[in-house]
Simulated assay, not measured.
Amino acid sequence: MHRAIPFDEIHRWMFDTALPLWADVGFDGQTGTFAEKLAFSGKPIDTGFHRTRVTGRQTYVFAHAALMGWERGQDLAAAGARKLNAIYQGPEHGWPRTTNTAGDVIDGTPDLYDLAFTLFGFAWHYRASQDPESLASAHRALDFIELHMRAPVGFWHELPPSGWRLQNPHMHLLEASLVAFEASGDERFLKTAKQIVTLFRAHLFDGRTLAEYFDADWNRAPGDEGQLAEPGHQLEWAWILIQYGRLAGEDTLALAEALVGFAEAHGFDDRTGRVLQVVRSDGTIVDGGSRTWPNTERIKGHLALFEATGRDPRQAVATSARVLLDTYLATEVPGLWIDRFNADGLPEASDAPASTLYHVFLAFAEILRLRDAIEAIAD
C-alpha cells in the first residue's frame, strides 16, 4: 500500500498561506526589496543586507505562481526583475553578492551562485510575462558569466577564485540555463547547459557519488573534503538532468537513476523519513541532521524518474511531503518553516530564511503539475 499524496493540503499551503505571507510581509513595496528572513512571529527581520540570490529566487517564486494562476504573482515578479536590474553594476562588475536596502553595494564579489539565480529570476519572469527587458537582462547575465567567470574548464565560483572549486553553482547555472532556453528558444542557453553537463559527466560524478569540492583541475579535493557528498544535491541533480535530457534530446536516465539510488541507499533515514545532510562517498554519515531543502529535492528526484520511466513515485513523494508538512512547515504562523532539525530530531532554527521558499514551492508545484498523471496510476 502506498501513502496518499496530500495534493489539496499542498495547494492550500502554497496559495492560501505561504504566498500571501511572503507577498505581504516578505516584500517591502516602498524599497522594492524582499526580506532575507522572517521571525517565527511572522515579522520581517532587518538583516542589514539583501542577497542577490534571494531576489532571484523570490522573483522565480512569484513568476511561477503567476503562471499557476495566482494573480498577484505578476506584479511581485516584475518588482523582483526591476530590483535585479537596479543593482546591476554594468558589464565590468555585474551583480553584487549583497546590497543594502537602498541598493548600494555591500559585497561586490562576482559569485557564480548569485549570477545563476539572477539568470534564473530573469528567465522565469520572461517565461511568465514575455517582457523583452527580462530576456535582454537574462542575456546580460550570461554575457557577464561568459566574459568574466569562465575558466579553462567550467566556471570560477567567485572572483578572484579562492578555496576549492564547487559543483553547486554549476548545477544552478545549468538549471537557470534550461529555464532560459525553454522560455526563449535561444540555443545560446542550451549550449551553456551542454557544457555543464559535459563537466558533470567528466569530473563531478563518478557514477555513484557527486563530490562537492574539487581542486583547480577538477580532481576531487584531497582528504576528507573530497569524499563528502550531499544526498540533497544528488537528488537535485537528478531532477535537473532529466529536464536537460528532455530539452536537449539526450539520454540522462542512467545518471539520474544512479544519483537517486545512492541518495536513497545512504542519505535517507527510513526511521524519520528525512534526507540526511552530508555523507561520505562510502555512505558513512557525516551530518545526520536535515534541512528543509533536501527533502524537497527527494520529491523532485522521484517525480523526474516517474516522468522518465513511469515508475510509481507515490510512496516516496507522499512520505517526503508529509514530513515537510508535519514537521518543517508546521509553524505557529502558517507559511513559514523550521529550516533544520539536528540528528536527534530537534529543531535548530531561529527564523525562516526566504531562500528556502524556492525549494518548497518548486517541489510542491511539480507535485501539482503531475497530479493527473499520478492519480491515473493503476493500483
Rank of each mutant, 00 (worst) to 15 (best):
H2T: 13
P6Y: 05
P6G: 10
F7H: 11
D8E: 15
F15D: 11
F15T: 10
L21N: 13
W22Q: 09
D24I: 03
A39P: 06
D46G: 06
T47G: 11
G48K: 08
F49N: 07
R53S: 09
Q58P: 01
A66F: 13
G69Y: 05
W70A: 03
Q74R: 06
L76V: 00
G80I: 00
R82G: 08
R82F: 04
E92R: 11
E92D: 14
P96G: 01
D107K: 04
G108R: 04
D111P: 00
A116N: 01
T118Q: 06
F120R: 01
F120Q: 00
F122A: 10
H125K: 12
H125N: 15
Y126Q: 05
R127T: 07
E133T: 15
L135G: 14
L147Q: 15
M149K: 06
R150H: 05
R150W: 03
W156Q: 13
H157Y: 14
P160W: 12
S162E: 15
G163R: 06
G163K: 05
R165L: 10
L166F: 10
Q167F: 14
P169M: 12
H170E: 07
H172A: 02
E175H: 02
L178C: 02
F181A: 10
F189M: 07
T192P: 03
Q195S: 10
T198C: 12
L199W: 07
F200Y: 08
F200V: 05
A202S: 11
L204Q: 11
R208Y: 12
D215S: 09
N219L: 09
N219P: 04
A221K: 09
Q227H: 12
A229H: 14
E230H: 08
E230F: 03
P231H: 04
P231N: 03
E236H: 00
W237I: 00
L241Y: 02
L247G: 00
G249P: 00
E250S: 08
D251E: 07
T252D: 01
G261H: 10
G267V: 04
G267R: 00
G267T: 08
F268N: 13
F268R: 15
D269Y: 02
T272K: 04
R274D: 12
V275W: 13
Q277A: 15
D287L: 15
G289M: 07
G289P: 02
G289C: 04
G289I: 03
R291E: 13
P294C: 13
K300S: 04
H302I: 06
E307S: 12
G310A: 05
D312A: 14
Q315A: 15
A316P: 09
A318L: 02
A318Y: 05
T319P: 05
L325P: 00
T327K: 13
A330Y: 10
E332K: 11
V333L: 13
G335L: 01
W337D: 05
W337R: 05
D339M: 03
D339R: 10
R340E: 14
A343S: 09
A352P: 06
A352E: 05
P353E: 06
P353D: 09
P353N: 08
H359C: 01
F361A: 11
L368S: 05
L368G: 02
L368H: 03
L370T: 08
R371W: 05
I374P: 00
I374K: 04
I377W: 07
